[in-house]
Write a protein that binds this DNA or RNA. Structure first.
Lengths: 248, 248
DNA sequence: GTCGTTTCTTGATCTGGGTCAAAGTTGCGC
DNA sequence: GCGCAACTTTGACCCAGATCAAGAAACGAC
């Protein structure tokens, strides 16, 4: 399909973010063609599990649209989310054959996957792919470490404000800014998923969201539709610097 | 100093772990020589700060001996440790010019450093350095995510047991196994540093260590010298699988 | 529409770990 | 040795967030 391919090549990340974020920017056209050959799409419905921790994982890939979560579970059922995958985020680990975490689609999800063995082979031959993956992994490591501060030292209210800040900032594809400068978005997570991310219970999440609404930090329409009238106020509630700080 | 260099080249990680972990294994001798040229050692005393968050950081490097910590601090003084650097661990981020965290030596510390600009240049020319750094960064990311589960979902007692498990397992250079199969080591961290790692207060750390001792999970001589009579018991207390699970 | 299910909110109560306070221990400099 | 400082332990009390419980709201299937 010449037409489809040339479209995806020219439009960079519109169709498949990894081509832009991890590969495209510096790829020669023959490398792009080889990526095309090992690439395929997978679609999941909200709630579906992409892969279970421990399962064999013979692909790597990135999120095209939708949101997925990485979670760990203890034997007694306690769970902790350890990553939130937004469009363009990379999944999978070159050099490891089994998944380390449960990956679950929390909204309808489209992923762009590459078969692992040929991807690794291509990586060996194409140095800047490894360099790009290193950059992305370092970004993820920074995000994980920021999250350790949230989990270890912030109050429930600060945790909620931190999560809302991240969603408001990172998921630019969903966000909208109104004429009044408000930031508006739909929460892509249930209260329970938020609790799993924040190390809280869903009841505490619900209470703190109600409290933030009562205090005018956010506005809520229904259960999911959020308006942030003053982003710096939200960041202040999150315990970050007003100018954005860590999640900038 | 021909003698010194040939010693360090032949002994691999004895003198400078990065040469083994990140570079040596697959380096040609001319690459090793170029590393030698940009390499230097830095020594720190226990308690000294290696670098402050936000400071310009014109080197990368790895820990040769001793232990350092990465910490984040909020404006109001709350601090969270986000990384524990043991011998062979890598510090610094290619492509970033300022430190993201405070790096503090908690014991006397020797680091093997490389000037950043030439290291990055060498990395550009030597693909397997980027690949090795990618592997190491992915390991760190896994460790950070394991730690998110500890911070978010474990009880104080489980947190302490988890930390003791990590130290017992990872710091093989300090550990000793007695004739009876006991694991023996000296805690490299103060109660306060443990609290900062675990998202607890130092009082809670102290109480839980006392409780573990009273329950026979560990034995203590003085404040720092720990004996673990039964590692699987400790892992059980940590909430991990008895066979080692996540920190294996 | 109604029923059933899932998600969310709110209230009442409990408790693990934080806070405040005091005393004990260790080690170093002189 | 003594004195001081840093670190650690222990106790008493408190509170943020967990737990238990009951409804309310949203959404689909029929």
């Amino acid at each position: 399909m010449l037409n489809e391919r040339s479209l995806s090549v020219s439009q960079e990340c519109a169709e498949c973010p990894i081509r832009h974020r991890a590969v495209c920017a510096r790829c020669e056209s023959d490398e792009l063609e080889r990526l095309e050959e090992i690439k395929y799409y997978r679609k999941f419905e909200a709630g579906q599990t992409v892969i279970w921790s421990g399962d064999r994982m013979d692909f790597v890939g990135s999120v095209v649209s939708g949101i997925a979560t990485l979670t760990q579970t203890m034997e007694d059922g306690r769970t902790q989310m350890v990553g939130l995958l937004l469009p363009s985020d990379f999944v999978g680990r070159p050099g490891r054959s089994n998944a380390a975490y449960d990956v679950v689609a929390t909204t309808d999800l489209v992923m762009c996957c590459f078969r692992k063995a040929p991807f690794e082979e291509l990586m060996r031959q194409t140095p800047h792919i490894a360099q790009r993956l290193l950059e992305m992994t370092l970004d993820e490591l920074d995000a994980a470490r920021e999250w350790m501060l949230v989990l270890g030292r912030k109050t429930a209210r600060e945790k909620i404000a931190s999560l809302l800040s991240i969603i408001a900032r990172r998921d630019a594809s969903i966000n909208m800014t109104t004429a009044h400068g408000n930031i508006v978005f739909d929460l892509p997570l249930t209260r329970e998923a938020m609790a799993d991310y924040l190390g809280l219970t869903l009841e505490t999440v619900s209470r703190q969201i109600s409290a933030l609404r009562k205090d005018g930090v956010i506005e809520l329409e229904g259960k999911r539709h959020v308006t942030v009238p003053d982003m710096s106020r939200l960041l202040e509630e999150a315990g970050d610097d007003a100018d954005g700080g860590v999640f900038a």
